[in-house]
Simulated assay, not measured.
Amino acid sequence: MKYCSIASGSNGNCYYVAKGQQAILIDVGINTKHLELRMWNLGIIPSKIQAIFITHEHTDHIRGLSVFCKKYQIPVYLTEGTYSGTKLRLPEHLVNIIKPNATIKLGELTIFGIPKFHDAKEPCSFVISDGKSNISILTDIGRICENVKHVIQHSDVLVLESNFDEEMLANGRYSYYLKNRIRSGWGHISNRISVEVFQECRTNRLKHLILSHLSGQNNTIEIVERTFAPFCQDIRFSIATRTEETELFDINELVLKQVV
């Protein structure tokens, strides 16, 4: 499987996973022009995308959805609550309503819905599997639940939210209301909580950790790297930034490096 972060953060989120002829996106939170540009940088052909899975209805996850799916006639998979929350009217033939815990088979890929806590109507995360390896995308997690722990324990590649530094949020310019929303158990998880659950639940099968959805106001790449790097000496470690795509990774190359 090949995978990457095309966009990550409160200004837009989009993740790519492919195996053979199957290629999907998780969320389309940037506009079509920028999405196409970043895909071009990675050698990804937009018309080859076969499905889009939406985690929830917040703008940073659906900003480019309507234009992109209509332009390339790509089926969209999302929960009933998420679809009603988007207030979008997508072409009926492109809309596929799923349960938060749905299992969708697309060629060589199986996509598992993972219900989670977040201040959205019917949100879910996704795990993408080819039957051998699991790529897990866990962002916008209000709190750590058993679903999150189970996914981390069975991940070969883990895209994990590390949204905010607790001290920066507490002392920052956000309103009292917004600060409480973020740390309420329905918003996002901090660097501290993220690294704690990572250490608790990771297993020997994990080959690559990608930290994601960093806050632009309440976090820095340097803090996240300093927090996680000591625990990632034996695996590939990456940070998805708000301003550009990651490289296009190949899980087979990670496996070969472990064997060597």
Rank of each mutant, 00 (worst) to 15 (best):
C4T: 11
A7N: 05
A7D: 06
A7L: 05
G9L: 04
V17G: 00
A18W: 13
Q21M: 05
Q22I: 11
Q22C: 05
V28R: 04
I30S: 03
N31A: 02
E36C: 07
R38G: 00
M39D: 03
N41V: 00
S47D: 12
S47T: 09
I54D: 07
E57S: 08
D60V: 02
H61W: 01
G64Y: 14
S66R: 01
S66W: 03
K70L: 08
K70A: 09
Y77V: 11
L78Q: 04
T79S: 14
T79G: 07
G81T: 07
Y83H: 08
K87F: 09
L88N: 06
L88C: 01
R89V: 11
V95E: 02
I98H: 05
N101C: 10
N101Y: 15
T103V: 15
I104R: 06
K105M: 11
G107L: 04
T110F: 06
T110S: 09
G113I: 03
I114Y: 06
K116H: 01
F117T: 01
D119Q: 07
E122Q: 15
P123N: 04
P123S: 06
P123T: 05
C124T: 11
C124D: 02
C124A: 12
S125L: 05
I128Y: 14
D130G: 00
N134Y: 11
L138W: 04
T139M: 14
T139V: 13
G142C: 08
R143S: 10
N147H: 08
V148I: 15
K149M: 13
H150C: 08
H150K: 14
V151G: 01
V151I: 14
I152F: 10
H154I: 00
V157W: 09
L158G: 02
N163S: 12
D165H: 10
D165C: 11
E167R: 10
L169N: 05
L169K: 03
N171P: 00
G172D: 08
G172M: 09
K179R: 06
N180E: 15
R183V: 03
H188T: 08
I189K: 08
N191E: 08
N191D: 09
R192E: 15
V197G: 02
F198Q: 05
F198Y: 15
Q199I: 03
E200K: 12
C201P: 01
T203G: 05
K207D: 09
K207Y: 06
K207V: 00
H208L: 09
L209P: 04
I210H: 02
S212M: 10
S215Q: 09
S215V: 09
V224Q: 13
T227P: 01
P230N: 07
F231C: 06
I235G: 03
F237E: 13
S238T: 15
A240C: 04
R242I: 07
R242S: 10
R242E: 12
T243F: 12
E247F: 12
I251V: 13
I251E: 13
E253F: 12
V255K: 13
L256I: 11
K257M: 13
K257L: 15
V259F: 15
